[in-house]
Simulated scan of single mutants.
Amino acid sequence: MSRTPDTSQEAPPREAALNGAAGFINPEHLTADTLGSLGDWLTRAPSRPFVLRDFVAPRTARAMGAALRALPVWTRCVTAFASDTETEDIPESEWAGHPRRAACHYVARDLPGVLAEGAMESAHQAALRGFLGKALLTDTLRDWIAAGTGISLSSKETSLELACYGPGDQIRPHQDLVPRRVFAVNFYLDEAHRPDTGGRLVYRNEEDTEFAVEPLFNSFSMIQIRPDAWHRVEPYGGAGRGRFTVSVGLHRAA
């Protein structure tokens, strides 16, 4: 069984998207075959995560992983659902017993401040600028995905979160049903991650089948945002902070 994606907006040519991602995405994934696999994934039913290992160019992945670990702005983020699509901060002391608990982890705040002169090592700042430029500020990532899926993606509504997890941290089941959001992308950039420490992304599809994605270093995952699917992050069991992740929410062009 398959679905036909809505392609009312024209997607970028494949060759241009592949050329534009050179230097950011690992060359083994800059192929027509990978883009074809992405298109097959979108139309395949039931839905499941799309996962690629060794996704980012190795030097870029290592540099970004080190920069994330060195960030001085990791802040506790503990939230509960205020509605089906919105959350509100709550005291961490209320997390365990809260009936609508949503997420408990660390997020990076004040990224402009981090990029100010002297805020952290220049090599880390360069890694952050380069990675976020390709993943968020330019169309590099969006064009690569659009070329494979046939869905034109907005450059104005892309969302970003940098996150990491401490022992027991997790994200509860949710859907991210933001208007026009179609995909959620995760880059996993913790070189120290081990498969026995939890923190897997779990996706539950329209048939109530669950798929778990291990956040191995330099892996890429993408899931569809659908009203009949949910996702969560299992409790993290590593020592100290880990599971360093860059999450990008992608929206269909208006």
Rank of each mutant, 00 (worst) to 15 (best):
M1T: 12
M1N: 09
T7M: 12
E10N: 10
A11C: 06
P12C: 02
P13L: 11
R14K: 13
R14P: 07
E15W: 04
L18Q: 00
G20D: 03
G20Q: 09
G23H: 03
T31D: 03
T34A: 10
L35V: 10
G36P: 07
S37P: 05
D40R: 15
L42I: 04
P49F: 08
L52V: 00
R53S: 14
R53G: 13
D54V: 01
A57H: 12
P58M: 05
P58T: 04
T60A: 13
T60Y: 03
A61M: 00
A63V: 01
M64Y: 01
A70P: 01
L71T: 00
T75I: 01
T75S: 04
T85R: 15
T85M: 07
E86A: 14
T87A: 14
P91A: 13
P91L: 09
S93G: 06
S93V: 10
S93Y: 02
W95P: 03
H98E: 09
R101G: 10
G113A: 08
A119C: 02
E121P: 05
S122F: 07
A123R: 13
A123L: 06
A126N: 14
L132S: 05
K134M: 07
K134T: 04
A135V: 08
L137G: 10
L137A: 15
T138Y: 03
G150Y: 07
L153P: 03
S154V: 05
S155H: 12
K156M: 11
L162Y: 02
Q170E: 14
I171Q: 11
R172N: 11
P173F: 06
P179F: 05
F187Y: 13
F187V: 01
D196W: 09
R200S: 09
Y203Q: 06
R204E: 15
E206H: 09
T209G: 09
F211H: 15
V213L: 11
L216D: 15
F217Q: 02
F217A: 01
N218A: 03
Q224G: 12
Q224P: 03
R226P: 07
P235H: 03
Y236A: 07
G242Y: 02
A253L: 14
